[in-house]
Design a protein around this nucleic acid. Structure first.
Lengths: 339, 339
DNA sequence: CTGAAAGCGCTTACAG
DNA sequence: CTGAAAGCGCTTACAG
């Protein structure tokens, strides 16, 4: 079959141990034999077998990436590829590979995580979401497996490495911005309340509202499950309120445009009648009409740091837990107007 | 450390061989001992070590996924997550894992492919693109490694399993549709000419044009590299032609909307002044203004079959090469008008 | 129906 | 500076 370390050893007239040491660039091996061995490796087309190597060193040099159920819309969202690009970049730098969860349901993914960690397929895990009462995170936490989370964990927050934006702060700032433009009736269309990011943003929203002594009106809140699209009906309900919103904050650019299309169907102009503000800064948002005011949350950086954090834990299990906050910035474009 | 097959054997008072056979559900083991062993496995929390298992059976149960350089815009595009979803689904069904390339440049990715295949990290490869003169495909082909391609290979076409749309046909149909609407000056904004899909679509375009004895005008062709966005300047050039196009075919919805935004900047109305037609049917395209007429190319199916094809090759290296054509359909919306 | 032994392709103390 | 040997955690002929 493939050429092994033994073949190289024989051809180079050294022992397999020596070949192994040459691969590891062990300083105790003379330059002469290194050269000789490397030549025959090249000549024979030798490539080390990871499985064998990993088995003995008890590592895999790979990181498992767990996303929420792939059946969801989250997949349509550019968030995933972009965060992956950040992760890839950092992982590649340290010669780590990426292993992806393939399950479609929460249960399947849970099984996968157990099997990939227990079965030593990966050295650590990046959780691409933070959800309330998540079994997978709980398992990871209890098993003392190196992992990091994109998003603030709702429990054990102090003992888990994670990367996040300042979601409460961002949301506060954004709502405050709208208030500054003269808006008082501000709706919030968020992701499902099982996600910590949604809860945090809702908290920031509320803080900003109440600071101005505007009363918090639950009617103005739509919590759209992340797996379905935005429902036209929710938008309709919102706009048919006795006091409809004059501004809407939403959690993703794609959702924002879907929202805007429903508003247009109802002959409601953006930003003429209603201002819309969003998160994620999709590459398209500057080109569409209206150009969307949105918060850039540095998705690539999120991925980069998530990788950095697991890597730290993998390299040293006693490494201190770290929390990284990645910057966000509001990009003002044309979808909001002052009253 | 972790509990191994030996621990289970000891606890269940059988040999490691027997435990191994129980895991494999070998029919020669009595139901009695199977039950006993399974219980102690459960009790001890045993999970098989993949590395060890894979080392002896000489398989990995994982598929490597190679995308074009991650530095590109292709990543912003929903194509990648959607095709991945299709692949995941099929892979999960057969209990195969997914291993992702992380390199940012062609050269890095090439090195990775060699190391993941030679180093036995994966059993097979899915190439997510087909490019002219691609070194990676050439290597895969020559090394007799199981692989499949999303997109028609430009060489060895008969000896490689791949899945594709009928790109020539689709493009022909689409251009023909525009001609049917009365258009004669039809521009084509395609991806880079290094991709077979772009070449094929251009071929279909040309066929449709020439069938009507409309002369092929190179001025109407823009071949945008896939890694950069569409350049405003190219659009400007197109529209400042002596005889500017009345319709534009473009290769991706996101690009189409970027194009449309440039046209709007130039006070050119879509579809009033120019019709626009695209490929990929992004989930957003029905919601935006104008709703985009686009070709749905069944991206999910593309992934599904790509996985199916490698799996066939992995399971049986002598399995016949197959070519799968996935259906496409033109979705007429509001971005084209008849002259 | 079950076990002892060899082996997958590596690494790494230990010895020299 | 290098080698022989043991071992990582499994599987699988071979034997009984």
């Amino acid at each position: 079959m493939a050429v092994t370390i033994k073949d190289v050893a024989k051809a180079a007239a050294v022992s397999p141990a020596t070949v192994s040491r040459v691969i590891a660039d062990n300083p105790r091996i003379s330059e002469d034999t290194k050269r000789k061995v490397r030549e025959t490796m090249k000549h024979l087309g030798y490539y080390p077998n990871f499985q064998a190597r990993n088995l003995v060193i008890q590592k895999t040099q790979t990181i498992g990436i767990i996303m929420a159920d792939s059946a969801t819309l989250a997949f349509q969202n550019p968030f995933f590829p972009e965060v992956l690009r950040g992760i890839s970049s950092r992982a590649h730098e340290s010669q780590y590979g990426l292993y992806l969860s393939t399950g479609a349901t929460t249960e399947e993914i849970y099984e996968e995580v157990i099997s990939m960690t227990q079965g030593k397929r990966v050295d650590g895990i990046i959780l691409l979401y933070s959800r309330i009462g998540d079994k997978i995170m709980e398992y990871l936490y209890n098993s003392n497996i190196p992992f990091s989370v994109v998003g603030r964990p709702d429990v054990h927050t102090e003992s888990i490495s994670y990367v996040d934006n300042d979601n409460v702060g961002n949301s506060y700032e954004v709502v405050n911005y709208l208030i500054g433009l003269g808006h008082q009736r501000i709706a919030y269309v968020g992701g499902g309340l099982e996600y910590v990011v949604s809860l945090d943003r809702l908290k920031g929203y509320r803080k900003a509202i109440e600071k101005e002594a505007i009363s918090y009106d639950p009617e103005l809140i739509v919590n759209q499950s992340i797996s379905t699209g935005l429902e036209e009906q929710s938008v309709r309900r919102l706009m048919q309120l006795d006091q409809p919103p004059t501004a809407i904050v939403t959690h993703d650019d794609l959702i924002a445009y879907e929202l805007i299309s429903y508003l247009q169907d109802m002959k409601i102009d953006v930003p003429g009648d209603v201002s819309v503000l969003s998160f994620n800064n999709h590459s398209l948002s500057e080109h569409l009409k209206p150009p969307l005011s949105t918060v850039d949350i540095s998705i690539y950086e999120l991925g980069l740091h998530a990788a950095e954090l697991v890597l730290e834990k993998i390299k040293d299990r006693e490494a201190p837990v770290r929390e990284v906050t990645v910057p966000s910035r509001l990009i003002e474009r044309g979808s909001c107007r002052s009253l």
